[in-house]
């Protein structure tokens, strides 16, 4: 990787966009190819987010250049290139940090919406 970490601070400091979060979440379970990521993102989001190829590959290119994901391997299936992507260690950290940030926000929101239920849920947890 050529780019220094100086140039890669943006993702960790800004809120991640939902498609990016879902792509990284799809890869958290293991390496996947492009079509697999599309289907997994739809499944994770309960069909609310359906990515298309243009959006997906623009995102994959950006995430690769940020060092968040990398190519895990390639194969030829029915005469067509299939490339697998995986999270890098840095990508795992970025996803974990974003998930933790969202969880904290969600907890605060639940507490404020319904203090009694949230306190009970905290006690049970």
């Amino acid at each position: 990787m050529i780019r220094s970490s100086v140039y890669n601070t943006g993702m960790s400091k800004q809120a991640m966009r939902e498609p990016t979060f879902l792509i990284l979440t799809a890869l958290a379970a293991g390496p996947q190819h492009g079509y697999g990521i599309l289907n997994d993102v739809a499944r994770i989001s309960d069909d609310r987010v359906r990515l298309r190829a243009g959006t997906l590959y623009a995102a994959l290119d950006r995430l690769r250049s940020d060092g968040v994901i990398d190519v895990d391997g390639e194969e030829i299936v029915d005469g067509r290139l299939r490339r697998y992507y995986r999270l890098t260690p840095s990508g795992t950290q970025v996803l974990a940090a974003e998930a933790a940030r969202m969880a904290v926000n969600a907890t605060v929101a639940m507490h404020r919406l319904n203090p009694g239920t949230a306190a009970l849920a905290d006690a049970i947890a």
Binding site: Y35, L38, R52, T55, V77, L81, R82
Partner: peptide
Amino acid sequence: EMIGVLLAAGSEGRRRPAAGDVIDL
């Protein structure tokens, strides 16, 4: 790789891309 994904995600028998794919690309 994108061509492979686009063809896999496209409907059977389609001769032209869907409007959504055109806009997205």
